[in-house]
Design a protein around this nucleic acid. Structure first.
Lengths: 175, 175
DNA sequence: TACATTTGTAAGTGATTACTCACTTTTGTG
DNA sequence: CACAAAAGTGAGTAATCACTTACAAATGTA
């Protein structure tokens, strides 16, 4: 990816997260990226092409985020690491903005993008199975959906403390 | 509210839920409502005025939805009724669409709209307190955020079974 | 009936939209 | 160096946007 391509993508990322995809014009993106508007279409073909690139990067970063967890064999450690993901989503303003956008995009695309979470869901399933939970599959889905709820609220409600939510989850699962 | 006003509001509701607020033009709304475009502005002043009306109706309907719960004194019954709300959100296609839009709007307004849930949150808090949970406040927030997560997933993921999620919650809380 | 108010319409408005095109500049390669 | 391909520009384009305005129809009220 060339320098200008990255500038375009980062500008799009920021603006889409701030104002939404449909509400952000390609001319705004070009202006923030410091390039001509035409260049966006040369590199990404469409405005939709910009979104696709962002979605793809979301999948990449999600994989990277889960890599450590899915390789873990100790079930308690799987849970602990899962509940520590909250911090990772919030390391830098750029990171926070990136994941906020991923949540926001779901509603503009009307797509849950569940396949991104599948490896993590299976890791949790296996962990709960080892811990003899009666319904590992439901338990795993429950954990992920709950964490989704916490994250959603975190991004929309300024006053919400994500870490206390995660701490609560840890205590629920005896960690 | 006159007949045409309601037609406009219902058309807007449908279209905003389908395509999003920013992506729905006032001309589309007028066409679906079967009125002239100018009438929208006569009755609602702005395109934003349309949204405001929808948000207000969301608050009304939420109040109505919670009315039964906040008056309940038996804590177990409070929880049971809360976990039964899933069905209510899904009674008719119109209802489902309405609540889906309420969730979707949050992201376009970047507002969690938490005050809508406050009475319910306090009812849950009181219930958990009566049931001697160690941290009723956190527990109540946890339940609501989790249900939010379930609802979000329900609206975005066609294959997701909301009722099994609610059943899981019931079993978690011994109901 | 008379007449003022409200409700409704149709044809505009300038601004903005995603996208194209003709063109120049930069870069890679023999 | 020569020269083709890729990167980049900026001024266009038609379509669509939210909104206005001038006017007509319906309605309430005396």
């Amino acid at each position: 990816m060339t320098e200008k391509q990255e500038k375009i993508l980062n500008a799009a990322l920021e603006l889409f997260a701030e104002e939404g995809f449909r509400n952000t014009s390609t001319s705004k993106v070009a202006k923030r990226a410091g390039v001509s508007e035409g260049l966006i279409f040369r590199h990404f073909e469409n405005k939709d092409g910009l979104l696709e690139a962002i979605v793809r990067e979301g999948e990449e970063r999600a994989k990277h985020l889960f890599a450590d967890i899915v390789l873990e064999t100790d079930p308690k450690e799987v849970l602990r690491k899962t509940f520590n993901m909250g911090e990772k989503l919030n390391k830098s303003p750029e990171t926070a903005n990136f994941w906020k956008l991923q949540y926001k995009i779901k509603w503009e695309l009307e797509d849950y993008m569940g396949h991104k979470l599948e490896p993590l869901e299976r890791a949790l399933e296996s962990a709960f199975s080892k811990l003899n939970y009666p319904n590992p599959e439901l338990e795993a889905r429950f954990v992920l959906t709950t964490m989704d709820g916490f994250a959603t609220r975190f991004y929309l409600d300024k006053g919400f403390d994500l870490e206390s939510g995660m701490e609560f989850l840890r205590s629920k699962y005896g960690l």
